[in-house]
Each structure stands twice: as structure tokens, then as C-alpha cells.
């Protein structure tokens, strides 16, 4: 039944896409610049951090600025998806209590919405990369399968968080606090080679792999086979874990929200 729910969701991809699009439209309704604000916000942050941190960390701005631009763009996608996942079913309560539409579709809507925001942010990445003449290579194409794997992992994580959150009202708080901690521990604002002797901090962090599998190829670097393997294993374990949890909770979600 859980598998049926998910396949039904995929059969209605354009509904979830439209709803995700509408969410974004609703957020910026009445604003003059609209979703361009997303791009502006990231642009300002990247500019500030690039100037400040390249001084603080003694790195060159022409390598650090593109690095921070792509890091923040990917991290915004990860963080926002997972934090917002805790309210997916609660926000959609009205629809869930009135229709037989598959529940997992609401998770797709969340992923699509954040994908659209990612697209707005990516404008800054391209701009900064052109500005600092970052060399792209054929390896950069590997960013595409890497990105698809990242989306897949975010989807199963969101499915778990959204299901648990509808039952246990402490989960949204846990996710919020965990994401703050993970943001500090993951090389988003700093670079992996800055912690010699403490690499284990990276190796035990699943988000390190998810970040690197997209970030490295975009910057024209080769991704270690080890990173690919870890992400593939995470995808496999995550699908099984999320499916079995969703199978147990799916039918009851409507009563909990």
C-alpha cells in the first residue's frame, strides 16, 4: 500500500509541480520583485561571506567566492527541505482530510518547491563562477547524477521527518535544532581541508557526502569514488527505512493532523 501511494504520487507529478510552484507564487504575492528576492538574498550573503571569510581564513577570494556560492545554494536546498518537512502533512491537513490523494505527493510538492528556489539561487552560482573564471571540465557533468541522488536522499529523509512529525510533536523541534548543529559541523562555510587531523568529523557526517557529490563536480573537481559509494548506500538504506516507516504510519496520518 505504501508503494501504491508513492506510485500514485508519481502518476500525478504535474499536480505536485503545480502546487509547489503555487506555494512559491503565494509566498511572494504582492511583492514587486517577487521571487527575485531569493536571488538577491543569496547574492548579498555570498558577497559578504566571500569578502569576510577569505580574509579570516586566509584563502583567495577567487576560489573561495565560487565555493561559498555553491555551498550555500546546495545547503539552502538541504536545510529548508528538511526543516519544512516537519510541517508537510500538517499544512496539507485540509487536503488530506478531504481527498484520497496519495500522501507522499505532499513530500514531492515540498521537494519541487525547494528545487524552484534552488534554480533561483543557481543564478548567483553561475554569476560568481563566470566572474572568477572557474574552469569547468567534463567532470562537471557528474554534478547531474550527483544532484539527482541528492534529491532522492532529501525525498526519503523528508518522508521520514514528515511522517514522524505528524505523530510526535517534538520531532519538528528536534529537526530544527539538529539542522543548526549539522550546519556547523558540515563544511558549508568552511572547507574540508581546513581541519587536518580531525577528518573523522567529515567521515561520520552523511551530509558531507551529499554536499560534496554535487559541489565538487560543479567546481570542476573529480569526486572520490568513496563519496559515490556512500551516497549510493545511503540511498538504498534510506529507501528501505522510509518505505517501512511510511507503510506503518501512512493510514494513520489523517487522524493525527
Amino acid at each position: 500500500m505504501a508503494v501504491f501511494d508513492i506510485s500514485e504520487s508519481f502518476a500525478r507529478l504535474n499536480l505536485w509541480w503545480m502546487l509547489g510552484f503555487n506555494d512559491l507564487k503565494a509566498r511572494y504575492r504582492g511583492s514587486v520583485l517577487g521571487p527575485i528576492w531569493i536571488t538577491i538574498a543569496l547574492g548579498v550573503t555570498v558577497g559578504g561571506i566571500a569578502v569576510l571569510y577569505s580574509g579570516l581564513l586566509h584563502t583567495k577570494i577567487d576560489t573561495f567566492a565560487p565555493y561559498i556560492a555553491i555551498s550555500l545554494t546546495i545547503w539552502a536546498l538541504i536545510q529548508t527541505s528538511l526543516v519544512e518537512a516537519s510541517s508537510v502533512f500538517v499544512v496539507a491537513a485540509n487536503v488530506i482530510k478531504q481527498t484520497a490523494l496519495p500522501k507522499s505527493g505532499h513530500v514531492l510538492r515540498l521537494v519541487f518547491r525547494n528545487l524552484l528556489i534552488f534554480a533561483h539561487n543557481f543564478v548567483i552560482v553561475v554569476f560568481v563562477m563566470v566572474l572568477f573564471k572557474v574552469k569547468v571540465s567534463l567532470f562537471s557533468l557528474l554534478a547531474i547524477p550527483g544532484f539527482l541522488l541528492l534529491l532522492f536522499n532529501l525525498t526519503w529523509m523528508s518522508l521520514i521527518i514528515s511522517s514522524l512529525s505528524s505523530r510526535y510533536k517534538d520531532v519538528p523541534q528536534i529537526v530544527l535544532n539538529a539542522m543548526t548543529f549539522i550546519t556547523i559541523m558540515t563544511p558549508v562555510y568552511w572547507q574540508p581541508n581546513m581541519i587536518p587531523g580531525r577528518e573523522w568529523v567529515l567521515h561520520v557526517n552523511p551530509f558531507y557526502y551529499l554536499l560534496e557529490i554535487v559541489r565538487k563536480p560543479i567546481l570542476g573537481e573529480l569526486v572520490d569514488i568513496q563519496i559515490w559509494l556512500v551516497v549510493l548506500v545511503m540511498s538504498a538504506i534510506g529507501s528501505i527505512l522510509s518505505l517501512s516507516l511510511f507503510a506503518q504510519m501512512r493510514g494513520k496520518i489523517v487522524h493525527w493532523i
Binding site: I96, K97, Q98, T99, A100, G251, V254, H255
Partner: peptide, 8 residues
């Protein structure tokens, strides 16, 4: 709701 498929 049960007829509409909302409740299992």
C-alpha cells in the same frame, strides 16, 4: 470520508 477514500 471512508467512502471517499480518506479513511482506511
Amino acid at each position: 470520508r471512508a467512502v471517499a477514500g480518506v479513511f482506511e
